[in-house]
Amino acid sequence: MIIPKSFVYIVNRKEVRDFLKPTFFLLADCGKAWSYVLLEMIIFARQKGITAQTYND
């Protein structure tokens, strides 16, 4: 899923992040704004039923 980068730090999204965090297996910062979106984006992938045991920065 490709979503705005603000999702990872905006306070009112904390509950959603906390709910999704255990199922993340990929979170990638795209590093720049896309010309047709005008916002920085991140890519994240998750798998339902899988709980991550570690996090690599």
Rank of each mutant, 00 (worst) to 15 (best):
M1P: 14
I2E: 15
I3R: 02
I3P: 02
I3T: 03
I3L: 06
P4E: 12
P4L: 12
P4N: 11
K5F: 07
F7R: 03
V8H: 09
Y9E: 08
Y9F: 15
I10F: 12
V11L: 10
V11H: 11
N12R: 13
R13D: 07
K14D: 13
K14L: 15
E15N: 14
E15I: 13
E15T: 15
V16L: 10
V16N: 04
V16F: 02
V16I: 09
D18Y: 00
D18W: 00
D18N: 09
F19Q: 01
F19R: 02
L20C: 10
K21C: 01
K21F: 07
K21L: 08
P22W: 04
P22D: 00
T23Q: 03
T23A: 06
F24I: 09
F25P: 00
L26A: 14
L27S: 07
L27C: 09
C30E: 13
C30F: 07
G31C: 05
K32E: 15
A33Y: 06
W34R: 10
S35W: 06
Y36Q: 08
V37S: 06
L38W: 12
L38N: 13
L38P: 02
L38I: 06
L39N: 13
E40W: 03
E40C: 05
I42H: 00
I42P: 01
I42E: 04
I42A: 02
I43C: 11
I43D: 04
I43E: 04
A45S: 11
R46G: 14
R46F: 10
Q47I: 10
K48S: 12
K48V: 10
T51K: 09
A52K: 09
Q53V: 00
Q53N: 02
T54W: 04
T54C: 01
Y55Q: 12
Y55E: 12
Y55M: 10
N56Q: 11
N56H: 10
N56T: 10
D57P: 01
D57W: 05
